[in-house]
Amino acid sequence: MVASLFGRPIYIAETMEQMYLIGIGSLFLVVLTGLFSGQGFAIAFANELSDFGAKDYLGRIMSLAIVRELGPTLTGLMMAARVASGITAEIGAMKSSNQLDAMRSFGIDPIKKIAAPRLITLIVMVPAMTVICDAVAIFGAWLIAIFHAHISSTMYWAAIRERLVFGNIFIGLVKPVVFSLVIAFISCYKGFTSEGGTKGVGQATTDSVVMSSITILITNFVFTKFFFPMLRGYL
């Protein structure tokens, strides 16, 4: 399957269609997730920090937490829930109704035609959605900083800027690329290997979401605990 993903032909029209369906289609979900998660975490942090008289640090903590952890993970999970299920169900339904075989009988490789455009789309769109989620979450936290914690706007943005260094941004962008690969491979694999008609497709779809979500959470931990500390001297 992996070998079939690379090489010609490249289905540009399908890739553009997926960019729209997966990217634009997920925008509203990602914006809502970022806004309310950012606000929720900001309230919790602001309350806790104010007990120590340290609520001016809210911006620093939010910047770090959102860009390195919350943004990539929440976006990954949301995309896994929305996109992985869709991809697996679509491919599984095509398989059970012989559409994949029909495609092969017309000399078209279904992996190139169906999986490759979705993989490319996810590699582009998951990081892009993560950046949007980060921005909205930071904005949501700013609202809390101003109206709930009564921190000055200037101080909040200065703290945010202070922690938006190359290392944190790099980490915040590497994770979604890895998550996009996780979602693409698991969802396509589950779709192409689904068996047992409608029930089998339903089971494959559930498995796809569960496996993608768990793998994203485990991968996030592994990267944060083991991989990024190794790069500390370089970032």
């Binding site: 012989n98 029909a102 009988s105 000399g107």
Partner: peptide, 22 residues
């Protein structure tokens, strides 16, 4: 697979239930 694809150009297949792209 490439040669099979070439050969399939001379074989028409009507799948069960049509297998039309829905």
């Amino acid at each position: 697979e490439k040669d099979k694809q070439e050969l399939r150009k001379s074989i028409g297949m009507v799948f069960q239930d049509g297998a039309l792209f829905d």
